[in-house]
């Protein structure tokens, strides 16, 4: 397979990671916590979408909408139940709480949803571009024929729509502007009369909606099981930190870097070691934290 094909896969992976990473990084920036249970929000969103699409059944776009609403509700309920009460205990207790909540949620999902992977029943159109000539350097083919499916296009298109919507929200609406102000300096925001709890709640809902969407997109691409979200949480986290924790725009950039690195390293690694591609993403994450802890754009995370 040519590098071009891998790049398309990377673009697709980057797209759903980007949607999730925006939600993750908004929580980090405004609630000041690393939410390790966020992967489970994706899984829940995917399952909600799946149930809507199969049990009700509703058409896929409606199911996506149901998953987003469901994700938002799940997120705010969990936040109110678990995170808001311990808001001022600091980042480490909040991180630990999210780890505990994640374990509990993951296993509850497994209990209810079973162990097997489930699939969205979608009709796929595949567009082939076999005429592209190969451009080989050693064993690596830089161009080569490639294909793209309607599912790929849906994921990439959805991500683009989310970026536009998030940009509009953060720059044009009162809530979004307040979110940015709070991310910069919470006490200053409070002094200016911003209802910080209201903004926090809005962020939780928004992050849940994004998780619901990302979860369904991930499930359409591959499948959904109890571990779907969890197996992506470190990639989401890497994307967010790479882009500078707390910065939504950085998270988008970081997500595509991660997505492309994952895909390209799959191309370069011997076939018996493709499992290492996720390790490559973590190596990047650690590298970023050590060399430029503030990411591509963001705040200092070193002490003293």
């Amino acid at each position: 397979m040519g590098l071009l094909q891998e790049a398309i896969f990377g673009l697709v992976t980057g797209s759903y990671i980007a949607i999730a990473a925006i939600g993750f990084t908004l929580i980090y920036g405004i609630v000041n916590m690393i939410n390790f249970a966020y992967g489970e929000y994706l899984t829940l969103g995917a399952f909600i979408g799946l149930v809507a699409a199969t049990a009700l059944p509703v058409p896929l776009p409606v199911a996506v909408l149901v998953a987003m609403i469901g994700g938002g509700i799940v997120s705010i309920v969990l936040a109110r139940g678990f995170f808001t009460p311990i808001n001022d205990t600091g980042p480490v207790p909040m991180l630990l709480t999210s780890i505990g909540l994640g374990i509990a949620l993951r296993n509850a999902i497994r209990l209810v949803g079973g162990r097997s992977a489930r699939y969205f029943d979608t009709e796929t159109a595949t567009f082939r571009f076999d005429a592209v000539p190969s451009l080989s350097i050693g064993p690596i083919d830089l161009l080569g024929g490639f294909f793209i499916t309607s599912e790929h296009l849906i994921v990439i298109g959805a991500a683009a729509a989310v970026f536009v919507a998030i940009h509009g929200l953060l720059t044009r609406t009162d809530v979004g502007i307040a979110m940015r102000a709070m991310g910069d300096d919470e006490s200053l925001a409070r002094v200016r009369g911003i209802d910080t709890q209201l903004i926090r709640d809005s962020v939780w809902i928004l992050a849940g909606v994004l998780a619901g969407l990302a979860g369904v997109l991930m499930a359409i691409q591959t499948n959904v099981s109890a571990d779907t979200g969890f197996s992506h949480i470190l990639q989401i986290l890497s994307a967010a930190i790479l882009g500078g924790a707390g910065s939504p725009y950085g998270a988008i950039l970081g997500a595509y870097v991660i997505g492309l690195v994952l895909a390209v390293s799959t191309a370069f690694l011997p076939s018996s070691m493709t499992g290492l591609s996720s390790a490559v993403a973590f190596v990047i994450l650690i590298g970023v934290l050590l060399v430029k802890p503030s990411g591509i754009a963001g705040t200092e995370v070193r002490e003293a």
């Binding site: 916590m33 690393i34 470190l234 290492l276 390790a279 934290l289 802890p293 995370v301 070193r302 002490e303």
Partner: peptide, 27 residues
């Protein structure tokens, strides 16, 4: 390399290190 990082980020670096080694052992 990492001991100067803030608590939650040290947690992430150590966690990611563990995952890297895990996948190295597997692969």
């Amino acid at each position: 390399t990492s001991i100067r990082l803030r608590g939650d980020f040290l947690a992430i670096v150590t966690l990611a290190t563990a995952e890297i080694f895990h996948s190295v052992f597997v692969n």
